[in-house]
């Protein structure tokens, strides 16, 4: 077991959800909420706690889209590409953000860990299409310019907070 990793947070989460296999998904969700991704160290630890193999935990974590094994950015931007948003041109928004942030389909998080850019299949806010979300806050009727501006202001907000 990795000795440097502080397991007290994970212990709290595991105890809060119950040490049983059926809690695995909610435990992973809580861990991801805390760390913004699933640190590798938690896998053998969680496997022990709920008495399944580490490969089984890995198998569950990789099945669901929302889990990330890589650290995610402070701002997780999700561009909706559901039907309604798609027909109202969500792809140009995605392309613009990718070029602004230097990201691609494969590289989804900026090196400074500020932004993660993903697509999501329908947020159910079709009336406001096209939409994107930043950490679950929905932004309606987005255009490539608006999205670009939003990212810029988020960056400023983050630098401001850091200073």
């Amino acid at each position: 077991m990795n000795r440097e990793f502080d397991y007290s947070v994970v212990d709290g989460i595991i105890d809060g959800n119950g040490r049983k296999i059926s809690s695995v998904i909610s435990i992973l969700q809580d861990i991801q909420e805390h760390y913004r991704y699933l640190p590798r160290e938690i896998f053998p630890y969680l496997a022990d706690a709920v008495a399944v193999s580490e490969a089984r935990i890995y198998s569950v974590a990789t099945f669901y889209e929302n889990f990330s094994l890589e650290p995610k950015g402070l701002y997780v931007v999700k561009v909706c590409d559901g039907t309604a948003c798609h027909v109202r041109r969500s792809i140009p928004i995605l392309n613009r953000l990718r070029s602004d942030l230097g990201l691609s389909e494969r590289k989804v998080t900026t090196d400074d860990l500020l932004f993660t850019l993903e697509t999501v299949s329908c947020l159910g806010a079709c009336g406001l299409a096209p939409v994107l979300t930043v950490n679950d806050k929905v932004y309606p009727a987005v255009t490539p310019d608006k999205a670009s501006q939003l990212v810029k202001s988020l960056r400023e907000e983050a630098t401001h907070a850091a200073a």
């Binding site: 193999s53 490969a55 990789t62």
Partner: peptide
């Protein structure tokens, strides 16, 4: 349980953790 499924759909593989 050394191996299990990983990922899903056409990306699914059999994998160790």
């Amino acid at each position: 349980g050394a191996v299990d499924f990983a990922y899903r759909g056409s990306k699914m593989t059999i994998s160790t953790a």
